[in-house]
Design a protein around this nucleic acid. Structure first.
Lengths: 257, 257
DNA sequence: ATAATAGTGTCTGTTAGACAGTATGCG
DNA sequence: CGCATACTGTCTAACAGACACTATTAT
């Protein structure tokens, strides 16, 4: 009972309505650290932030939205996200990753528009250099908890929720924590970054597990200067802490072994 | 230096070229078991297969391609994939999952066409019921190793490679093995399914780990009949083997704990 | 000295990994 | 009996998890 229409064989573009554009939307996450001024030499508080822009024209005028824009026929979706991200934040993101498509009919009042959502992770150090651009009236960082309470344009609330879920899973199963840390960091900083993204994460013996458990110790290594001496930092503590760096090893997880 | 064009604010559909369609392509995997006739009461050999269709019209006439078709403006991408899959195979897939977008300019000679790739896993039992439909001249199952050597239409070779990578990762990190197994199965069958998708998988003490390791034993449970008696099967062995079933528990993996 | 972070000692129970050995039942 | 699959016993080393304890140093 198969007809020709059931597979794509006899398609000609003019037979059917075609989409009115293929935009990308980028969820740009960063972690903002603020020093606790009351206490010297202590760990900063960290919070997850997301970058939003305020719309100026129809539809959703005045509402905040994820940055993004329409793909050109000469570029891939990925290149479009990369271009838009650079235009918005002035940085080449270290981590830019496609994560979902949004195609519910009616999601965009401008027409039939299927949007491609990306996840970008930006180190706050990098973003700070471009603070002027990011601090414009129409481009701002919001804490994720605040952004989740806002009425965002289109289905951007759902995209944000999905992105958050994705980054939480990835934080525990990959080494993306490195995107939020400097090249060399202390175990406490790493622990804090993980907890910032996944608040329920808790490991009592974290330092021991990650440094001396054989099956896991490959993912970070001690930082050494060019004389081979161990490097440490007392930026956030009285007692200096050993610095570590991520190796290029990505562990493979298995539920069966 | 931000212009209005850099964000999507002033877009009107007529300003730019729009895509010529938003199709889906579905990579349908199944595992085919064949009894080893030489040896009675032994484990079957299993192999991963993928369903392809032979194109009848321009472009890529006569070449094999992934099934799929164009999305309608009244449905989501997911609904399109579901519809096409049902039309092609006659089954509602147990597992249908979006996994990537393909947008390289020029990938489709018919125009500017961005394709959305899905991964479907179908139990061979379900597919066997529809064998007539699937055995048509233009719709066939190929072993994945054979499909990888074929010249597929469009960029479908790349899509297949990506889908294979994805399913291999998922086989070890989620319980999708259940899609390839009957509701009740033996430990050996589970082990075989995992190895069929991930040939390098090897666990010497598999049976013990999955049944009696506290942190892992939640993912499967012993099958019992309504009297509470343990169920076993001697379909593939002289000595009857205990049957198990997946629970609805999905383990959480973490590289840090 | 105090506060704040960094790290170690030690104990108990669990798990990993290897491999030999036993169990079952068809042909 | 032999074979193919299904388990179980046993031993060692490594790991998990808890928590008390020591270390360092700016203020």
């Amino acid at each position: 009972m198969k007809t020709m229409i059931e597979n794509e064989s006899n398609y000609t573009p003019s037979n059917y309505r075609t989409p009115d554009g293929a935009p990308t939307d980028v969820v740009i996450f960063t972690i903002v650290s603020t020093e606790r001024l009351a206490v010297k030499k202590s760990m900063p508080t960290r919070e997850l932030y997301v970058l939003l822009i305020q719309r100026k024209v129809w539809p959703f005028v005045g509402q905040w939205a994820l940055p993004g824009g329409f793909t050109r026929e000469t570029e891939t979706i990925y290149e479009c996200a990369q271009r838009e991200l650079k235009e918005e934040t002035g940085v080449e993101p270290m981590h830019l990753e496609y994560f979902n498509v949004y195609s519910t009919p009616g999601r965009d009042p401008r027409g039939w528009i299927i949007s491609h959502a990306f996840l970008a992770l930006v180190n706050e150090g990098v973003l700070k250099d471009r603070k002027a651009a990011v601090d414009a009236m129409d481009v701002r960082l919001f804490s994720v908890s605040e952004a989740l309470t806002m009425e965002l344009a289109f289905d951007h609330h759902q995209i944000l929720v999905d992105a958050l879920l994705k980054i939480r899973l990835q934080m525990l199963s990959t080494t993306i924590a490195k995107e939020f840390l400097p090249a060399e960091f202390t175990i406490s900083e790493l622990y804090q970054v993980i907890q910032t993204v996944v608040p329920e994460f808790e490991e009592k013996n974290f330092i021991r597990k990650i440094t001396s458990t054989q099956s896991r110790k490959g993912i970070i290594e001690e930082a050494r200067d060019r004389n081979g001496e161990l490097k440490s930092s007392n930026l956030h503590s009285q007692r200096a802490a050993q610095l570590y760096r991520f190796t290029d090893h990505e562990p493979q997880l298995s539920i069966y072994s």
